[in-house]
Design a protein around this nucleic acid. Structure first.
Length: 292
DNA sequence: CATGCCCCCTGCACGC
DNA sequence: TGCGTGCAGGGGGCAT
């Protein structure tokens, strides 16, 4: 499910709904995720206050008052459900048609005020880990991450250096979390479509002869930023509607290429048709007419 | 080093 | 209705 915008939506929701609350207990019904949960997870969490909820790439980082960090990764089907009072929140899950099977609530956390949090993950590609104080910055999972795409570190100069000499496709390069953190299959397709760049184009062709950034590279960065910003904003609006107990107006962001095989290209002035192809074993959606 | 392939696991849509 | 097939937003390991 979740790429940067969805994880960011979950982050913001958790911050507002459980930030500052104290964990009173919980239960684990299935600890065998992609990596098993730490054996004594619940004992280590009991009595702790949620100090912060941050995000790095697709990782959720829950800061506790012991200075430990709970790392949550949602994999493909991970979802977080929060119940406070009579309201149930399920942020960032854009496949609204998918049922939530309670049998896949692998972890439940209870808070002193009666709120409850569930981690649900049918395919169990996600994981939950608890990292000792001060160890997060040395964690190999964090160290392997490239810059945040919405930060200034993700600059034309950076990306030019990253792409220089690389024959690999733009699609593969952008999916790599070491290049930039948080993009997944959907938003890579969307960003390349907005930038009118072919997913098969070699990454190095966006680098000038002197190793300098090119206009295409600037276009790509702008496209990545805009599609992510719009999706984050849509997630924010969805949360606010849920908070006011308003019905879901739309199922979230409307994708312009993803899952639109055979439909017309929506780029201005383009009369092309969206195609699907396989790259690295995953679907790529693109318009060969305007993406070069 | 880079790339493609397979695997982890479950649910769902589709065709017969 | 029921069953088989292929596919899914992530990521890691392995062979080539």
């Amino acid at each position: 499910m979740p790429e940067l915008p969805e994880v960011e939506t979950v982050r913001g929701t958790l911050e507002r709904l459980v930030g500052g609350k104290v964990i009173s207990g919980g239960s684990v019904s299935q600890s065998e995720l992609r990596c098993p949960m730490p054996a004594n997870l619940l004992q280590r969490l009991a009595g702790q206050r949620i100090q912060s909820v941050k995000r790095r790439g697709k990782f959720l980082l829950v800061g506790l008052d012991s200075r430990e960090t709970l790392i949550v990764h949602l994999g493909m089907t991970g979802r977080i459900i929060v119940q406070t009072g009579t309201t149930t929140f399920e942020p960032g899950f854009y496949d609204r048609g998918a049922r939530r099977f309670v049998s896949h609530d692998h972890l439940e956390l209870r808070f002193k005020d009666g709120s409850r949090l569930f981690y649900n993950d049918s395919r169990r590609f996600g994981f939950i880990d608890l990292v000792r104080p001060g160890r997060l910055r040395f964690d190999p999972r964090m160290r392997a991450l490239g810059p945040e795409p919405l930060s200034n570190d993700f600059s034309p100069t950076y990306l030019a250096a990253c792409f220089a000499g690389r024959k690999t496709s733009l699609k593969a390069a952008l999916l790599c979390q070491e290049t930039v953190a948080g993009l997944g299959n959907i938003y890579v397709c969307e960003a390349l479509h907005r930038a009118r760049l072919s997913p098969r184009r070699a990454a190095r062709t966006l680098v000038g002869g002197n190793g300098a950034p090119t206009m295409r590279l600037d276009r790509l960065i702008a496209a990545i930023r805009s599609v992510l910003q719009e999706a984050v904003a849509a997630g924010e609006q969805a949360f606010l509607r849920a908070e006011r107990c308003e019905p879901e107006a739309s199922p979230g962001v409307r994708f312009r290429v993803y899952d639109r095989e055979g439909e017309p290209c929506l780029n201005a002035g383009c009369k092309g048709t969206i195609e699907r192809s396989i790259q690295g074993g995953r679907s790529t959606f693109f318009c060969r007419r305007c993406q070069r």
